[in-house]
């Protein structure tokens, strides 16, 4: 073992979820951010951070995305700019691990936004609950000879694991949802070190 990995609950995780104006990382804006920390394995709602983000211009909100996030221009035009928001996020990202459900999308949007504002991406270690769902499915493979594809949708995966239904598509609620899902999957995988979760 080259590097020792810390016990999983000795590090701080910031669970994060973004609502975006579409799914195209290259051109769609971030419209809302929700973040909640886990310290010693406990989700601290009181420290959560949630904000809307002002997109560069009204047309930036892809009409087909409105159905999902329910955010329209009128709601976000008074919100802080993406630069202000990134500066608020940045301190949190530097505190520990970034925890997301489907890192490909959220981390992609964040990196793009950082670059757009001329900021340096802090490159935190990332834990992705979608990866953990795959890990859990592979583990089940040993006992179940014909495993089904794992359920990857956040709400559906939570339901399968016995977690309560939360309203979806609110950035903070989705971040809390992902954080709870993480706690259950961490237990299911029997992971003791951070390394086993990445």
């Amino acid at each position: 073992m080259l590097f020792s990995s810390p016990p999983w609950d000795s590090v701080v995780y910031w669970a994060l979820d973004l609502e975006t104006g579409g799914l195209d990382v290259r051109q769609d804006p971030i419209l809302a951010v929700g973040m909640v920390p886990l310290r010693q394995g406990i989700i601290r709602l009181g420290e959560s951070y949630a904000t809307l983000v002002r997109p560069p211009r009204p047309e930036a909100i892809n009409p087909s995305s409105i159905q999902a996030h329910q955010l329209v221009w009128g709601e976000v035009r008074e919100a802080p700019s993406v630069l202000d928001v990134l500066q608020a996020i940045d301190g949190r990202l530097r505190e520990g691990v970034l925890l997301v459900h489907e890192a490909r999308i959220d981390v992609g949007f964040l990196k793009k936004a950082y670059a757009g504002c001329g900021l340096r991406w802090p490159a935190p270690p990332v834990v992705d609950t979608v990866d953990l769902l795959w890990k859990a499915a592979r583990m089940a493979h040993f006992t179940d000879p014909s495993p089904a594809e794992p359920t990857l949708n956040l709400a559906a995966a939570r339901a399968e694991l016995g977690l309560p239904a939360y309203p979806a598509h609110d950035a903070l609620t989705d971040a809390v949802s992902a954080a709870e899902l993480f706690l259950v999957l961490r237990r299911k995988l029997g992971a003791k070190k951070l390394r086993e979760l990445r």
């Binding site: 406990i42 989700i43 601290r44 709602l45 009181g46 954080a179 709870e180 706690l183 259950v184 237990r187």
Partner: peptide, 11 residues
């Protein structure tokens, strides 16, 4: 009070 709410998971 609710601002200090925490969520815990125990197997």
């Amino acid at each position: 009070a609710s601002r200090a709410l925490e969520i815990a998971y125990y197997p």
